[in-house]
């Protein structure tokens, strides 16, 4: 082989090391723990115990699905409005969208606790106005709100970036061919934004379904999610094997979801995800 390919391989070496260390190795660890018992023998027993966690799986998927859909509904108009602005305004607005992401995740969740609590910000305002208080903290709604709040930017940004690339002449061509505003939207803008939507759906669903902490704080521990369960296996029960088995199933679930989404996006555009 020639020099340049050796050079290229040398240049790629750090990334190779990095991905072996931080991607492949942890994955192998998870697989190893999931399929072994305490004495290191191969076993399926860890998976046999998963039956008792089925309600956790169902709840996690259900909450995440709702959060993802809510994100999509909220994000699409926002992304669209940003993409229609002048370029300079667009940059400012994108900055504003990303601003909360620079704040610590725990901090953001704590602030929502303060807002939603029975004696929190909202309820104090309500009582000042003479209205009866609303119980919000420790409800499924609060947990989903936490997910939506934390992951909304991941839905807005990919949709915004595909919409910003849509050429004005496409819209004019459609109008020229007889499309009214609604038809321009459904036949040109929406299909064009599919790759962004697909990418946003994954980027919200995946972290939502594996999230921990949000439910502990905003759900008051009443709504155990997969992430919390896994955390408990490692942090308090010290049952690494069960934790790994749950993680493994979660990973497979996510992969299946992503494959389905990828296919759905590819049908429309032939584009890639993420």
């Amino acid at each position: 082989m020639n020099k340049s390919s050796i050079g290229a391989r040398l240049a790629a070496a750090p990334y190779l090391v990095w991905s072996v260390l931080f991607v492949v190795a942890p994955l192998l660890m998870v697989v190893y723990y999931a399929f072994t018992d305490d004495s290191g023998n191969f076993t399926f027993l860890n998976f046999a115990q998963l039956g008792s966690y089925s309600d956790v799986f169902v709840r996690s998927i259900w909450f995440s699905l709702i959060a993802t859909v809510v994100c999509l509904v909220l994000a699409y108009p926002v992304a669209y409005l940003i993409a229609m602005r002048h370029e300079r305004t667009q940059r400012v607005l994108v900055m504003l969208i990303m601003l909360p992401m620079w704040m610590n995740f725990l901090l953001r969740t704590y602030s929502w606790m303060a807002i939603l609590e029975d004696t929190g910000v909202i309820n104090s305002i309500l009582s000042k106005l003479g209205l009866s208080p609303v119980h919000m903290i420790n409800t499924p709604g609060a947990v989903i709100l936490g997910m939506v709040y934390n992951y909304l930017p991941y839905m807005i940004l990919p949709i915004y970036s595909v919409l910003a690339k849509l050429e004005r002449s496409m819209i004019e061509a459609a109008q020229d061919l007889g499309a009214n505003r609604w038809q321009v939207f459904t036949r040109i803008i929406l299909p064009h934004s599919m790759p962004g939507i697909a990418s946003g759906l994954t980027m919200v669903f995946v972290p939502s379904v594996s999230t921990f902490y949000i439910s502990q704080k905003l759900g008051g521990g009443k709504f155990d999610l997969i992430g919390d369960t896994i955390e408990r296996q490692f942090q308090t029960s010290y049952n690494y094997h069960l934790g790994a088995a749950i993680s493994f199933v979660l990973m497979v679930l996510i992969l299946v979801c992503m494959a389905a989404l990828n296919k759905f996006a590819a049908d429309d555009e032939g584009g890639l995800l993420i």
Binding site: E167, S169, M170, E172, A173, A174, D176, L177, I188, P191, H192, M194, D268, E269
Partner: peptide
Amino acid sequence: PVNTVFQKYALFPH
């Protein structure tokens, strides 16, 4: 009742 052939064609890529 007019149609346009745009300078850069503006075909729909999808």
